[in-house]
Design a binder for these strands. Structure first.
Lengths: 188, 188
DNA sequence: ATCTAATCAATACCAACGTATTGTTCTGCT
DNA sequence: AGCAGAACAATACGTTGGTATTGATTAGAT
């Protein structure tokens, strides 16, 4: 499907993704600090040479992982745009709360890379852009540009609820009730 | 002032704090991953032996730093309890938003250690406890235990606004307007 | 069939890591 | 004054880090 340069194998994307998945698994359980080329290779069950072939340097690997996790989050949001603006909004907000253990893993990795991006300007821009787009989308779904502040508040609440859920301060169910109650107030 | 064991020097606390400050500076500019005993020693202008003397292992150093940054946040909140419940609430909420560059540094370091705590169970408990206490305080200031959900929402909004401010999605001024507007609604 | 580039495993390199050890200097009780 | 332990500085040790290099193998265009 995708055009590729001469000689590039068909399994290129799959192998690349497998390596990135190993990075995510390591980040999830041990943090970005513990990510090493060797450990990534071990976790993925491949050689160091292979990892180096797909990502020339460690920085490149981490940047690709950061980008990939960002995209995965954006996809999750995009998948839930359907029905009335209100329904779309509710669906997206639900997706922003880590529900089961699989969600929690994803959110932990996202937070790890968000923190990593704080000290890596090139990545920081992407995080900012993602949040900014989501904020604009929220305002739009609430009624238009004059709901900008409401959109920002809603996004902030969702982001904060995710943090509180991830740190076991509240349960996913509590978070959902709170954010849905608030969005209903803002939609009324 | 503080009771200390025999022979412990008077400058003990000051020297210990100086080392932790070096850790904070490193975490702020380079992230937890880049913290090494040698770099900490260099940044603090002391020998590796000194760092080792005050913190036997790197884990102990990071745990102490995490604890210290947590305490500093708690102090900032505690300082602003005065006047009516409403005024206290407003004052605390303002403190939870990174205003100037100095605030931003503190918040960046806090977020770095919060993420670090996600993969370090012993530290995770402290983070959870801190948020839980703050949530309970918010509910109390809003009127009592039956305002628990409102307290949680308010905390989530404040936490999220801090994140959005730190990532340059919104300005500190915007964040303050939003959270103060919301707390006024909840106090009415 | 051949040839070129992609692919990858193996391994070597050196810097930097955390830590342990050693010995000296300083502090403060008695 | 003298002694015990704190408070270092210096340095050595073994490990692991990222990266470079090399060579064998494979895939795919011609």
């Amino acid at each position: 499907m995708v055009a590729h340069v001469r000689g590039q194998g068909a399994a290129y994307d799959a192998r690349r993704t497998a390596i990135l998945d190993a990075v995510f698994a390591l980040v999830d359980t041990e943090g970005v600090a513990q990510v090493t080329i060797r450990r990534v290779a071990d976790r993925a069950g491949v050689s160091v040479g292979r990892v180096q072939h797909y990502f020339k340097t460690k920085d490149e690997l981490l940047e690709a992982a950061s980008s990939a996790i960002n995209d995965r989050g954006a996809e999750r949001v995009a998948e839930h745009a359907a029905g009335t603006p209100g329904d779309t909004l509710r669906a997206i907000l639900r997706v922003l709360i880590p529900r089961d253990e699989e969600d929690r893993r994803l959110f932990r990795v996202q937070q790890a890379f968000e923190t990593y991006a704080l000290t890596t300007p090139a990545l920081g821009a992407r995080v900012t852009q993602g949040y900014t787009e989501l904020s604009a989308l929220f305002a739009l779904l609430l009624g238009g540009p004059d709901r900008t502040a409401d959109g920002q508040e809603l996004l902030a609440t969702a982001v904060g609820l995710a943090t509180l859920t991830l740190t076991d301060v509240i349960t996913p169910a509590e978070a959902e009730v709170i954010v849905l109650r608030r969005v209903d107030q803002l939609l009324a």
